[in-house]
């Protein structure tokens, strides 16, 4: 069976005919396999969902218990139609997985979803999965993206907090994954006191703690006089009136995009923190070298850069041009 008969893009997302399932579909389908809980990959309303236990629980938290008709925890190899699928850690956020699809006849395809190879205490590390076809994101698929050690970024946060001790530091971070990562990094960097969190982060932070991830003392950021110099909030909160309660805050934002100054300026950020849970350029190119697949498929992001790199290294590659995934969702 040819590779594009095993998996190909459709309007609903990547579809696998021999298994009759979609991976990370962007609209309701009868059977969905989901890599991770971010809103643009994990949507409500499918007939059946297969994902890691943590991704299923996260979807239930976000969409309510009835987000799908039936669900199945992905553990070990599972037969789906005429294929065998297995889920492997992606190192992106809690519960995130790559999905390996092995058809009974034909090449093995690994859909990596969003993945990251930097150590991250809030999730299991990325695991390389040998394959014939590697499906990768290219969010940061340009050679300018070399994300620094996140602890170095935390040192900058601490320096600013020391330089402006009277000002609260409001850091924008996506509610699922990034927020908990920033909190965990802050703890690693020695910020021990209470950290205030926006209400929209509460349930997901609680869930991380239930899963055994130490986030230290978190208090709700309800009023300006909350006794915490560090406040974490989802990016949407910064456009809302919520932020007005703080008197003279330093506004920060944690994202891989903050590496580019124009992006940070567009957001009106005073303290850009380059913290990403996606592979940067060295990581994505190293992963492709390491796995040495016979073909690379690129889902979304800056595919032109990665396509060019594959061409220069004589690796067969093609863009899938999937629509509906955000570069780095907010």
């Amino acid at each position: 069976m040819r590779a594009d008969q095993i998996l190909h893009p459709t309007e609903a997302g990547l579809y696998c005919p021999p298994g009759d399932f979609h991976i990370d579909p962007i609209r309701p389908v009868p059977r969905a396999l989901i890599t991770h809980g971010h809103g643009d990959h994990a949507r409500a309303g499918h007939g059946a969902v297969m994902a890691t236990r943590q991704t299923l629980e996260i979807m239930a938290i976000r969409y309510g218990a009835d987000f799908t008709e039936t669900r199945q925890v992905a553990e070990g190899p599972i037969r789906v139609g005429d294929t065998t699928v297995s889920f492997h850690p992606a190192g992106h956020i809690l519960g995130s997985a790559q999905i390996a699809v092995q058809p009974d006849k034909g090449p093995k395809i690994v859909v990596s979803g969003d993945y990251c190879r930097r150590p991250n205490l809030v999730c299991a590390p990325y695991e390389p999965v040998p394959c014939d076809i590697f499906v990768t994101e290219a969010t940061f698929g340009l050679p300018v993206f070399r994300h620094p050690d996140p602890l170095q970024e935390m040192a900058r946060l601490r320096a600013s907090m020391a330089e402006f001790p009277e000002r609260q530091h409001l850091i924008g971070a996506y509610a699922l994954g990034k927020a908990q990562r920033v909190i965990s990094l802050a703890r690693q960097a020695g910020i021990d006191g209470p950290i205030a969190i926006h209400g929209a982060l509460q349930r997901l932070c609680d869930y991380h703690v239930e899963q055994g991830i130490d986030l230290g003392e978190l208090i709700p950021a309800t009023a300006a006089d909350v006794p915490a110099q560090l406040v974490i909030a989802p990016p949407s909160a910064f456009a809302s009136a919520w932020v007005q309660r703080f008197r003279d805050p330093v506004i920060g934002f944690a994202s891989g995009w903050m590496q580019v100054r124009a992006r940070a300026r567009q957001r009106g950020v005073e303290l850009p923190l380059v913290i990403s849970d996606h592979v940067d350029w060295p990581q994505v190119t190293q992963t492709i070298r390491e796995l040495a697949p016979s073909e690379v498929w690129i889902t979304h992001g800056n595919e032109d850069g990665l396509m060019r790199w594959c061409q220069l290294h004589q690796i067969a590659a093609r863009p899938l041009r999937l629509v509906g995934y955000e570069d780095e969702p907010e």
């Binding site: 340009l142 050679p143 300018v144 070399r146 800056n302 850069g305 060019r308």
Partner: peptide
């Protein structure tokens, strides 16, 4: 040092020559 096309794509994204070079 850098493939011309990759540099052009990067510069286009970053928008500042010194910054592009510093990053790449």
């Amino acid at each position: 040092r850098v493939d011309e096309q990759l540099f052009a794509l990067s510069y286009d994204f970053v928008g500042d020559l010194a910054e592009t070079i510093a990053l790449i």
